[in-house]
Design a protein around this nucleic acid. Structure first.
Length: 449
RNA sequence: GCCCUGGUAGUAUAGUCCGGUCUAGUAUAAGCGGCUGUCGCCCGCUCGACCCGGGUUCAAAUCCCGGCCAGGGCGCCA
């Protein structure tokens, strides 16, 4: 299908000139009857009834109806109005008119319209939402897709999550840190790393801030970091990304119990502040968040195996819990719960073992239904112990020599956790595919846009 | 990486099982025209598509093979 570039009439655009927005659409109301306003935004809908024409203008905050009685307005306004299409970027200077004929009790009658930017039709997405596009199509035209209410709601909620989290952790004495994204070696083994040319050497993209944040408890005691990390896994699921945002904390003089309490308080605060401050967004998303009750349920790995066994799913002790078993668990516990006392061998080298049982770890996972939301634990802080654990897991201690230095400088006993921001957002927005809650997702197949 | 399912106008779908009246239906978007209060406005007309390559056949959107892409699941993980 040809694009007919030459057929698109080069439209004369107006300049913004001295116009500045006087109010967001959400701040206008019937009380402003008779006042002149300048509103800036995008055409969302056009309803042309002949002698009267309605434009719905959208800005970041909401929408407003522009009413044009075509026989009463100046020709310039009519010509401008007739040239508009959905998604054009326009400015309207007009008078607020109180009326019972719109849902919000007022409309704006224009005195002047400026066309600031055009949109080339047909657009790759149906912006009226009458025929919603598939996720793949939407991601290919992502910035346009992000103009839709649902998406603006998701990112408003994300913003609320992050600001709540930063406020809460600051209040608890944590300071925000940035650890390197470019690293020399694997931090944990396990997950696959992306490699890159670093001048004349090979470097990697960090998969986690784990070792740095542990080291930093030595100087700052309580640290947290929010940032992207990278995993070159071949996974094809609706909850994995190659680039994801990790929320990490690490706390000196603490054990898993301390950081589990911190974590459940974080989740509690996030859920309650979203319920309080993002009511409109939750309505747009048709989603409800049940207020969580503290403390969250805690199950040992053994208790979970027993429970699964009763459901006819048998897992030998020491094995990881497969996805299908997690789905069963999600039905049994349809909210937040912790799984503790994991077998030591299923946890990374930096997780401490139980004092009374070397086979069992002081590591935990925070689950939400069937999905792993966070994991953490008490860390090993003895150099001898951590070296032994590295060897057991087939990791050469010499690759970790800079990390091991910290153990010679008085590394305190410490504990911490990490949670995936996107998974948290899936839970808070009711989305079933992690790509829905990422602006420009990166996965095994997708590198653009 | 493996398994399953799918790929039809800008978007979303019907048709595919059982090959032929498919000149490919519908909705929406887009274009033109009409309409004085819409709020997914409405009405009429118009434009626009069978993923790519190969095969079977008198005949392929439809069956077969390969490729690419997508969705879901698994393993792995957050």
């Amino acid at each position: 299908m040809s694009f007919h570039a030459e057929a698109i009439v080069e439209m004369k655009l107006d300049s913004l000139g001295e116009w500045r927005r006087t109010l967001y659409t959400s701040d206008i109301g019937p009380a402003l009857d008779g006042k002149e306003v300048i509103i800036l935004g995008w055409v969302r809908e056009i309803r042309d009834l002949g002698a009267i024409k309605f434009l719905i203008l959208r800005d970041r905050q909401g929408t407003v109806q522009i009413t044009i009685p075509t026989k009463k307005v100046k020709k310039e306004i009519l010509d401008k109005a007739n040239s508009l299409q959905i998604q054009y970027c326009i400015g309207v200077k007009g008078v607020v008119k109180k009326t019972t004929m719109t849902q919000r009790g007022f409309e704006v009658v224009p005195n002047e319209i400026r066309v600031l930017s055009a949109a080339h039709h047909p657009l790759p997405l149906d912006m009226t939402r009458k025929t919603p596009a598939s996720l793949d199509t939407r991601l290919n035209a992502r910035v346009l897709d992000l103009c839709q209410d649902e998406n603006r709601a998701i990112w408003k909620i994300q913003h609320e999550v992050l600001s709540t989290l930063r406020r809460f952790l600051s209040d608890q004495g944590f300071i925000e840190i940035y650890t390197p994204r470019i690293i020399a070696t694997a931090t944990e083994g396990g997950a696959a790393l992306f490699s890159l040319d670093y001048f004349d050497r090979e470097a990697h993209l960090a998969q986690s801030p784990q070792l740095y944040k542990e080291e930093l408890t030595l100087c700052f005691e309580r640290v947290f970091e929010v940032g992207p990390f990278f995993r070159a896994e071949e996974s094809h699921t609706r909850r994995h990304l190659s680039e994801f945002i990790s929320i990490d904390i690490e706390q000196a003089f603490a054990t898993q119990e301390d950081v589990m309490t911190l974590l459940e308080q974080c989740m509690y605060n996030i859920c309650t502040s979203i319920n309080k401050d993002c009511e409109t967004e939750l309505v747009i998303l048709k989603h409800q968040i049940d207020p969580p009750t503290l403390p969250f349920k805690r199950f040992t790995y053994d208790a979970i195996l027993n429970e699964l066994n009763q459901k006819g799913v048998s897992i030998p002790w020491g094995e990881d819990i497969p996805t299908q078993a997690y789905r069963t668990l999600g039905e049994l516990h349809p909210y937040f719960y912790f799984i503790t006392d994991w077998p030591l061998k299923s946890k990374p080298f930096y997780i401490e073992s139980k004092e009374n049982n070397p086979e069992v770890s002081q590591g935990f996972d925070l689950m939400w239904k069937w999905m792993e939301l966070a994991s953490g634990g008490t860390r090993v802080h003895s150099k001898e112990q951590v070296t032994k654990r590295l060897e057991e897991q087939g990791l050469p201690p010499e690759s970790f020599k800079h990390h091991l230095q910290a153990f010679d400088y008085g590394l305190p006993p410490h504990a911490g956790w990490a949670t995936g921001l996107e998974r948290l957002l899936m839970m808070l927005t009711g989305k079933h595919n992690i790509r829905e809650v990422v602006l420009f997702p990166r996965d095994r197949a997708r590198l653009t846009p």
